[in-house]
Design a binder for these strands. Structure first.
Lengths: 230, 230
DNA sequence: GCCGATCCTTACGCGATCCTTACGGCCGCG
DNA sequence: CGCGGCCGTAAGGATCGCGTAAGGATCGGC
């Protein structure tokens, strides 16, 4: 957990030390607080990613600490306690804690629970891909497999579309015969150039008004094809 | 927790029943799944706010179920298990679970932990996932698993609904065969395209009046299906 | 343990799509 | 002028993918 900052709140120096060593060994960054007042202040000034809070503090009730932090922060709080009564757990969790671990605890489990809490913090990157290509009058919607030329919808078959999409992704550049063949037909057919002649012809027939002068797909003799930029 | 939807995954009917009663008494909304594959499909089609997952399922390893859901969703997952070994807890948490509760458990603690998980979910960048979808004359209630076409109620089976829900969630866009198969049937069947043919056919028979001209689900030969936007 | 609902499997007809082959035009070169 | 490489067009047959139907297996509830 490279650089995840953890605030440890416990009044026993021994436990703080134990936790610090274990956490730092696993790549966490550690800051400490001893009393409840201090904990609230540190949570504000240090801006930690996680708080580990012992419930048995001398100056404040642990649940009160949780409540104070929750007044302004949603930082994940993992509560430690020697008390295993169910009512205690419920009270702490309902006060705003995110997890409750009974002492004594296994350090491996604690670390796993910290990782689980840290995981949530990341803003999930959406699977947003462009899914649309526009080259002059030619508009290709990859998500819907639709093609429009100057607004008019054009119906392409599967291979025709795959071929045109490959050209559109490299618009302006030459795409060689083997590149096209590998992408659309697979490596086994990378020498069957005649496939391309037939299908390029069919695409042109559907896109162009004047088949004699193709506006979009140009031929590079002996090399490949390219989609003309506007 | 007014209306928080919980997906319960457990193979024992007794436990499902126990959890359902307890959760509904506290204002949760409950849906159930019995096997792992079903669980993954439900997580997709029902869009629950929390998942409660028993690790001892008959058909899949529990950690595998967690992984499958985590491929695309960040829904909070609370794992139940009879195994209290620390290594088990670590494995489940690192697989992507958010909490781990050992059976037998106190229902009050479980409820408190669910509230803690539900709390986190609120400010999340949820893209306002609606509980209802309307596409032209087609109306899908994801919460009640009800479908209406032009006001007329249509009864769909589980798999039929899961399939339609997956399409509706991506309405207008093409969903490929492997995507549909993975979500509804599981990765092991991502090549069984004939499943789709059968079930798409059955859905169309129930939605459309004229089976020859499907109004809603369109086919992209060799690629997938899509739900037509009005 | 039984029963109804649901799911899986298989087979078959049909249409769209793809592959194959053939032919004619254009060009540069001998 | 003949020839061969490269390209584009056309058309028929082979193949693929889709939809439908039906019987058997399996599941979940009682």
């Amino acid at each position: 957990m490279d650089g995840t900052k953890v605030l440890i709140v416990d009044d026993e120096a021994q436990i703080r030390r134990f936790l610090r060593i274990a956490l730092e060994a696993h790549g966490f960054q550690v800051v400490e607080a001893i009393r409840g007042q201090d904990a609230v202040a540190r949570a504000a000034s240090e801006n930690p990613d996680i708080v580990i809070l012992d419930l048995g503090l001398p100056d404040m009730d642990g649940k009160a600490v949780v409540g104070r932090i929750r007044e302004w922060s949603s930082v994940p709080i993992l509560v430690l306690s020697v008390r295993q009564a169910e009512a205690e757990k419920v009270a702490a969790l309902d006060a705003g804690a995110d997890d409750y671990v009974v002492k004594p605890f296994g350090i491996a489990e604690l670390l796993a629970r910290l990782r689980a809490l840290a995981r949530k913090r990341r803003p999930d990157a959406g699977p947003a891909e462009p899914a649309e290509l526009t080259v002059g009058e030619l508009h290709i919607d990859l998500a819907r497999r639709e093609v429009r030329v100057a607004g008019r919808a054009v119906r392409l078959t599967r291979k025709e579309f795959d071929l045109l999409a490959m050209l559109a992704r490299n618009a302006g550049r030459i795409v060689t015969h083997p590149q096209l063949l590998r992408q659309v037909w697979g490596r086994a057919h990378e020498n069957d150039v005649h496939y391309l002649r037939v299908f390029i012809g069919q695409i042109r027939e559907k896109l162009d008004d004047d088949p004699a002068h193709p506006r979009f797909i140009l031929n590079e003799p002996g090399v490949g094809y390219r989609l003309l930029l506007p």
